[in-house]
Amino acid sequence: MKQRPPDISDRSLGDTLAAWGLRGPAPSWVPAGFGDHHWTMTGDDGRRWFLTVADLSDKPHCGPDISSARLGLRRAMDTAYALRALPFVVPPLRTADGATVVALGERYGVSVFPFTPGTPGRFGETRTAGERRLVLDLLATLHSTPPPPDIPPYRPDIPGRAALDAALSETGTPWNGGPYAEPARALIARHAPALRAVTAAFDRQAARPVGTPVVTHGEPHPGNVLRDGERRLLVDWDTTALAPPERDLWLVTDDPADLAHYARATGRTPDRDAMAFHRLRWDLDDTAAFLTWFRAPHAEDPDTAEAWAGLTTTVARLAA
């Protein structure tokens, strides 16, 4: 995120890091990513660490409330740790008690990762053919890996579906959350018929049976891939789940030659209808998350500006 949360102090974060035995200068906040908050730290032993602080009140894919989101995030981070033997997984560090997530107050959960060299991509950027093959090879290995016992289950529904349905039904009265509330209401009112049509199509597709699920990352877009020469590393494992492989594949490619390459590596032919379903699910999930944000109290800042740009782009794509 671009805005540091005001209710997390250097002292409280430092106290939490004691669970990992980490001591040193105060961590440095990093204005990066979208969703979680990040810091870096150099310990007294000279090693560097990357800290992720998740806002459990806004983690619907992990759970609908803080308590269940804490459990869901722990299961996801435990899964990433269990996959640590895979050379492209950047796993969390465990505490002396074996925890991969430690509470910071009631609202937040902290995970610690080794600081890993590499250059991240940018969400939405176009991958070259060579880059797509590197990521597909990585996913082929992941999808062929036996699932860890406590991997989170896949849910085809939209975590924020209730918020999306409520927004579609309440465009006739003012929204008062903040500066983007009324623009969001006008946007949804203008495209409400098209949005209702795509949600109905989503419901029909969600009822389709799926094949054998595999270990998926959930969000292997360029922003979650570190590039280090020819090596590619996957970060941000909070969305991992036992799910159809198309949940990952649509974010990488729709090129027939690429999909044939994946099929040769795994023995599984990607289902294009399933890829389209997961593409639609992503857009509806984002729309629900943005609307939840804008109907709640919010301010004008770089994060809400980015969310507004995301909402307008996503709604335009859904309504096309």
Rank of each mutant, 00 (worst) to 15 (best):
G160L: 12
G160V: 07
G160D: 15
G160K: 04
R161H: 07
A162S: 14
L164T: 06
L164F: 13
A167T: 03
L168M: 14
L168I: 01
L168P: 00
L168E: 00
S169D: 15
S169N: 13
T171H: 07
T171G: 15
G172K: 03
G172F: 05
W175G: 03
W175C: 02
W175K: 01
G177T: 08
G178R: 08
G178D: 11
P179R: 06
P179D: 06
Y180V: 10
Y180F: 15
Y180A: 06
A181L: 04
E182H: 09
E182P: 09
E182C: 09
P183F: 12
P183D: 10
A184L: 05
A184M: 08
R185W: 08
L187Q: 04
L187D: 02
I188Q: 10
I188R: 07
A189M: 01
A189N: 01
R190F: 00
R190W: 01
R190I: 00
A192T: 11
A194H: 07
A194L: 05
A194T: 06
L195W: 02
L195D: 00
V198K: 02
V198H: 03
T199C: 06
A201C: 04
F202V: 03
D203W: 02
D203H: 11
R204G: 05
Q205K: 09
A206F: 01
A206V: 05
A206S: 13
A207V: 08
A207G: 12
A207H: 11
P209V: 13
V210C: 07
V210D: 06
T212Q: 11
T212L: 10
T212C: 05
V215Y: 07
V215I: 08
H217P: 07
G218A: 03
G218P: 01
G218R: 07
P220R: 08
H221P: 01
P222C: 03
P222Y: 05
G223M: 06
G223W: 05
N224D: 04
N224F: 00
V225L: 09
V225I: 15
L226I: 10
D228I: 02
D228P: 00
D228V: 06
D228S: 12
E230R: 14
E230G: 15
R231I: 07
R232C: 02
L233H: 09
V235P: 10
D236M: 06
